[in-house]
Computed example of a mutant assay.
Amino acid sequence: MNAEVHNLKPQKNNGVKAVINLVVLGLVVVILGMNSFATVQYGHVGLYKTFGKLSDNVLAPGVHVRIPFVQTVIQVNTQVTKSEADTSASSKDLQPVSTHVAVNYSVNKEAVYHLMNNIGGAYDSIIIAPAIQEIVKEVTAKYPAEDLIAKRDVVANEVSDLLTKRLAKYDLIVNDINIVNFKFSDAFNQSIEAKQVAQQQALKAENDLKRVEIEAKQKVAQAQAEAESLKLKKQEITPDLVQLKQIEVQEKALEKWDGRLPSVTGGATPFIEVDSFINK
């Protein structure tokens, strides 16, 4: 009996060991399987990295096979990305200017290997931000402070052209650039405000002067028109017209006369010529 029990224990132990071995083997297979594939996300490309060495084989978005624990896949974003930078500089007339610039850029898919192999993943802080600051300072120094405000589009285009050429060396594409804000000293802002007020006052005075000149011209034109009208009326007056008006006045006087002669008191009755009175 004891011999049988002794024989069963080794068999039981062997069975447990077999199960453990199967479980371990299964786990190894699962781990190897999980590490045998890598996924490149949409909007990215991938590069194999084998024992620290990059491969120039660019991987498109999707699932790719890799050697477990030997190879990794580095993903590089190729979508449009924004980089912002603040720059302090001086204008041509030595006014201090603080500029906030936003640049939209993207990575050239075909040159991802050169970018990652030569610069690495921190290309934003290593290449883009310093380039923005340097170029903005260079362009800002070419313009007086007031022109930086009035010609913002021209300044932005010049910055964009220079930055595009600079970043092209590193296979980076400039898609768009915006000068978000120019900030000047308080003294300069006050001088600009005072100048604008003076310009507005000068414009108002000029408009008032023009209005006065127009009104004076209108009065002259009106006086000339009235003089011309009087002149025409005088030209219309003839001796016949004067005689006709006299007759009209006499007729109106006769219509109002009641037929009585004027009476005189306190003395002799004067001799009145009736025909003369009638004519009057």
Rank of each mutant, 00 (worst) to 15 (best):
A102T: 11
Y113V: 08
N108Y: 09
K82S: 09
H100W: 04
V107G: 06
D86H: 08
A89V: 12
V112I: 15
N104V: 00
S88Q: 13
T87R: 00
V112T: 15
E110S: 12
H100E: 04
V103S: 02
A85C: 11
S98V: 13
L94K: 12
V112Q: 06
L115Q: 02
P96S: 15
N104R: 07
K82E: 05
T81Q: 15
H114N: 11
T87F: 01
S83V: 15
Q95L: 03
T99V: 15
S106K: 14
D93T: 14
S83G: 08
A111Q: 12
A102I: 10
S83E: 13
A89W: 05
L94M: 10
S91Q: 07
S106C: 05
H114A: 10
Q95Y: 06
V107R: 01
E110I: 06
V103L: 11
V112E: 04
D93V: 12
T81N: 13
T81Y: 00
Y105M: 11
H114T: 11
N108I: 05
S91D: 04
T99K: 00
E110W: 05
S90K: 04
T87N: 04
A89K: 05
V112Y: 12
A89D: 06
D93S: 07
L115M: 09
N108Q: 12
S90I: 04
V107S: 06
V103H: 01
K82D: 04
Q95R: 12
Q95I: 14
S90D: 03
S91W: 10
A85L: 07
L115P: 07
L115T: 08
T81K: 04
A111W: 05
Y105H: 14
T81V: 14
Y105P: 00
V103P: 00
V107N: 02
D86Q: 11
T99Y: 00
S98I: 10
S90H: 06
V112M: 07
S91A: 10
A85N: 13
K92Y: 14
N104A: 04
S98T: 13
D86I: 14
V107K: 00
V97H: 01
